[in-house]
Amino acid sequence: MAAMNGELRIRTARPEDEPELARLDHVSWSWLSDVVPQPAPDAQLFDERRPPVNFLVAESEGRILGYIQQGSPTPLPSNRHIRQIQGFVVDPAARGRGIGRALVEAACALARADGVHRMTLRVLAHNAQARRLYERCGFQVDGVLPEEFWLDGVYVDDVWMGRKL
């Protein structure tokens, strides 16, 4: 899948993108958005559960600016109508340019084209910027798991959001 938004191109990830995507994971890491310790700059990103085809990358002038990962929330056949955003990063130096919204909308469009009925995601309650982005993209809060995580010395709620496609 490729979509154009001015100079921004969104495409499916390729195996050779892994080092740059891992680097972006490393430089974008924050307790504001992550529930695991900071990954190494060369951490493996792709594996059997997370193949490159599950990732869309945003690039401009040959430079990867971000990615969004989506997949099935469970392996159950009765749950195949749902797709979940399971990873999402925009290069800190490229934020504020609409790249995040373009990635979310591209992921939803791809899921819709695949016959998926609903897109879901989880976001930390204190990540107000991400929550606003998801709301602008049509996601609504489906539920909250209070104090689900202990991060950087505070309890943080886990917010479940969803959008019908």
Results as ranks from 00 to 15, higher is better:
6 G>H: 06
7 E>C: 05
7 E>H: 09
8 L>N: 02
8 L>P: 04
10 I>G: 01
11 R>K: 13
13 A>W: 05
13 A>D: 11
13 A>S: 15
14 R>P: 06
15 P>F: 11
17 D>R: 13
18 E>M: 10
18 E>I: 14
18 E>F: 08
19 P>H: 11
20 E>V: 03
21 L>Y: 06
22 A>V: 10
22 A>F: 08
22 A>R: 09
23 R>H: 15
24 L>C: 08
25 D>W: 11
25 D>P: 00
27 V>Y: 12
28 S>Q: 08
30 S>V: 06
33 S>I: 00
34 D>G: 00
35 V>W: 01
35 V>I: 14
36 V>H: 14
36 V>K: 08
37 P>R: 11
38 Q>N: 07
39 P>D: 09
39 P>F: 09
39 P>A: 07
40 A>R: 15
40 A>H: 10
41 P>N: 14
42 D>Q: 14
42 D>Y: 07
43 A>G: 05
43 A>I: 00
43 A>R: 05
44 Q>C: 02
45 L>P: 05
46 F>M: 12
46 F>T: 02
46 F>H: 09
47 D>I: 02
47 D>G: 15
48 E>R: 11
48 E>N: 05
49 R>C: 03
50 R>T: 03
52 P>N: 10
53 V>C: 12
54 N>L: 03
54 N>A: 14
55 F>R: 02
56 L>Y: 01
56 L>N: 02
